[in-house]
Each structure stands twice: as C-alpha cells, then as structure tokens.
Design a protein around this nucleic acid. Structure first.
Lengths: 260, 260
DNA sequence: AATGATTAATAGTCAGGCAATATAAATTTG
DNA sequence: CAAATTTATATTGCCTGACTATTAATCATT
C-alpha cells in the first residue's frame, strides 16, 4: 500500500477468514460483503452501533473512503442506518432487503436457518407456479426455443457442472421473461440467486439430477402446449421436489459442520 | 459552501426541479435519488455511460466523495455499474431492483407506465391472497388486536388523511407479520411502499374510501375466523378493487399532465 | 418536571493527489 | 496478414487530513 511501516503482515484484512474467495473484488465491495456476513451471522445484532468510522477503517488498515462506501451499500440494502453523533446502527431484521439478489447470495454463505429456507420456498411455491401459468399464456416461439435449448443442456450436463447449472438458471429466467411482467422478473431474479446457491449445495449428490430434468420437462411441455393450468401444476411439483432435495442436503450440511 | 466564487446562484443543485421536496436529506442521498429518477425517466438509458465522476461532480458544485457514494447506492440497487477506464454504465432494465422499497418510491414519482402498474398488481394478486391465507392459519391474538385497531382508524379517518393511510399500511404489515415468513414480509414491505404511493394518488377521490374499508373488514373477518380460503378470496377481491381505483386515478392523472 | 440553550461527538463534505485497472492502440510474432 | 502480446492512456479506486453540519446528550432555565 502507501505506508507499510507495519513491517511484516501489514496486510489489509488482518484476521479475516474468507479473503481468498473474494480478494479479486474492489475494496468497498469486499468490505460490504464482509460486514453484511458479520451482521447475518449475528456478530453485530440489530440495534448495535458499529465502531466509529475512523476507528474501524484504521483497524482494517484502510482509509475512510472505501469504508464509507461500503456502509452506503449496506444502508441501501436496509442493513444499517447512519446518523451524526449517534453512529451507524444495525437495522431491525424486518428492514433488511432479503430479496436483493446480492443479499440472497450472502444469506447462503452463512448456512441459512431452516426457517429462512422454508420461507423462501413458501415464496417460490406462491410465485413460480403462477408465473408458469402466465408464461404458458404469453410465451413466444423464440422463448420456447430458448427453453428447449436450456433443457437439452441440462439433460446432458446435469446439475453437477457449471454449464448445467447455468442452463437451469436460463430456463427459469426465460420462463419469467415469457410472463412479460418486469416486476415478476425482478422478483424471481432474486429467487434465481437463491436457487443458484442451493443447487450448488445439493449438486454434491448427483443422483437427483435426472429427476430434476424430468420435472423441468413437464413444465416445458405444458408451456409449449399453452396449457396454463398444467404449467401451474407441474411447476408446483417441481418446486416441491426442489424443497425436499434442499432440505436433505441442508440436513447433511448441518451434520458435517466442517465441509470443504 | 466552501467556495462560492460563482457569485450569485452558486447553489448546489443548479437547475433541478424537485429540490424542495428532498432538500432535508444528505447530499449523497438526494443525489442518488436525483440520478435514479433521471434513469427512470430515460434521461440516461441502459447502456449509456454517465459523465465521468470528476466532470459530473464539478458540474454539480460538489466534491467527488458524495457523488461516488451516490453511485455506490445506485449500483447496490442494480442501476449502474462502474469500471475503471470504461466509466459508469447504466445497467439493463432487467438488472434494476424494482422490489427495493426505495426504488418503488422512485418509480411512483415518475408517473409509472401502465405496464408497470399492471405488473405490480399482478404480483399483488399472486402474493397477497396467499399471504392472507397463511395469516388466517397462523395469526396470534395480538396481531388480531392490532389489525382491528388499524381498521377502526381507517374507518374513522378514511384514506384522505395521513393517519388513515398509515393505518392502512399497518393493517397490511400486520397481516404479513402474521404469516411468520420473513421473506414474504420483505417482499410485501416493498409492495407497501407502492401501495402508499398509489393510495396517496387516488386519495384525491374520497368517495372510494368507504368501499375500501369494507374490503378490509371482510379480509379481517376471515382471518379472525381462521378461515384461510375465505381470507384468500376476500383479499383477492380487495386487490382487484384497488387495481380498478388505481387505473381510474392513473387515467385522470394522464389527462391532466400538469397536476399540483 | 418540562423546556430550552449549550456542548461534544460523530457522520458528512471538501480538496487534490497517487495507484490500480481495464480498454484501446501499437507492436511484435507466427 | 492474422493473432497474440505489449504498451499507452483514461477512468475509477483509494489515500490523507482537514473542515462542516448534524444530532444526542448535558446543562441551565422556567
């Protein structure tokens, strides 16, 4: 940096534990990430006042500028609220923008609670079948093609590979675009972030993969046929299966607290 | 400020049109707001590169620090993306976090398109009846009391007063808390921001008020009785009526482009 | 005891410079 | 001549240190 008089381990994030995974990003970004995870983990609880900006930034060997920018990011997502003289306070949980795609990602780094997983799938169970129904009524030929292609990739690659997972996401995304409702699209692009994580977690168990593809195929058939009710039903069953899978892998994860 | 050599109208936001409404906030906050509205209005379109930070901040008579912080806020909400050498680019619409409560507020300052309104109500129509059903099954006595109270205030005050509108919001919020699902709560606190705006718009037409209260009462009765299906139905009809009202006032608004 | 002025502590803003990075251009190489 | 590689350059990112504005808490006043 500019002044490495600390001679030795004058590194920036002294005692952090997960630096190597994010080290590529900008400073304020990784900081925001770090603080958010700390808040999600309960290191700072709602109502707590964070250490003052000067102290914090000095303690981290960075300047106030990126530290403040990180706080702005967090405050934009409803995590903290700063005021002169009072300092920066962690907001109540109900203020947190859980649907923000970035926040979703952060949640899944902290072994989310069963309660959160259940809540998330309750949301999916409400929205995705409805979205599938709308998609069946409004889809265009191009969107059908795209979903067909994504599904083919999923069948070949399964969810064990990155390509396969990307195809999965593309399938759901195209389905949503087919609803022609930008609010729904925004909602489910948040959900997609969650799905991405949970499929990554459960992809360690490759025997689910083929079932998952069959579920998708049934949804696709219904949408292709323009059968809204069938699309709704099959999507509902898809989400239910996904919930079961996620619950299983979540249980495994909790039994093995030190995974790699 | 520090250097008013411009002598005369060396004000900070020279040619803005809606300063007085937000002048109380911090600089980076009002700036973020301003830029967001500009983006929503199409002054900057997806793909455009914003003027460089130095130029922009100079043009606004502010320093780079709050300007950059404003950009961080916008980037946290998916509106822009900054990179060295390339500049700050406006993201594609699909990246925007439309469900962010703050963004919702911004949308309603820009006479949202009919398409957006329809999409929003489609989302409400999907989620709120489902939420009502869950609330009917999970509500506690305290939550019932609170909803009862909010409803009473609504009946007396109508939606014409601020107190009445706050009660309306509290009714919906309590209903969501009763679902015991924090993800749903987060979603609908965004929707609440939208409702707040649309009820303010349509509150110019006071004859809707009593109907609206009756709708709420039916929902409440069903939740109190623990009747999930009835709660779903009555909430569905509530939302449908709200959609009609909003459409009407939206139409009025578009016929009178210069409202006060 | 409530209300109003005073103080102190913290976030907010300013200024200008240096560093890192990604794009674009120029150069080398096959 | 095409493709890969280096170099140049423009822009964001970060640093320092000071000053300002705001607000919570204290103290004085009624």
């Amino acid at each position: 940096m500019q002044e490495h008089e600390d001679a030795g381990e004058g590194e920036v994030f002294a005692e952090g534990t997960y630096e190597e995974a994010v080290s590529t990003g900008r400073l304020h970004g990784t900081l925001a990430h770090r603080l958010a995870v700390d808040i999600l983990r309960g290191v700072y609880k709602p109502g707590d006042i964070l250490p003052y900006q000067l102290d914090s930034s000095e303690a981290l060997n960075i300047s106030r500028t990126p530290y403040r920018e990180a706080l702005k990011v967090l405050s934009a997502k409803g995590f903290v609220e700063s005021r002169p003289k009072r300092g920066t306070r962690v907001c109540d949980r109900t203020q947190w923008n859980l649907l923000d795609p970035e926040v979703m990602g952060w949640m899944f780094e902290t072994t989310p609670t069963d309660e959160f997983i259940d809540g998330l799938f309750e949301l999916r169970l409400i929205n995705e079948p409805a979205a599938a129904e709308l998609a069946a009524e409004r889809r265009t030929a191009e969107e059908l093609d795209r979903m067909r292609h994504a599904m083919e990739v999923m069948r070949v690659e399964t969810l064990a590979t990155e390509t396969g997972r990307l195809a999965d996401i593309d399938f759901h995304k195209t389905l949503l675009v087919a609803t022609k409702n930008e609010v729904l699209i925004s909602l489910n692009s948040s959900i997609a972030a969650a799905i991405a994580w949970s499929t990554r977690l459960k992809s360690s168990d490759p025997k689910d993969a083929r079932n998952s593809w069959q579920d998708h195929y049934r949804v696709f058939e219904a949408i292709e046929a323009g059968n809204g009710r069938a699309a709704r039903w099959s999507m509902e069953s898809l989400v239910r299966f996904a919930l079961e899978d996620t619950r299983r892998s979540q249980k495994r994860r909790q039994n093995l607290p030190n995974e790699g």
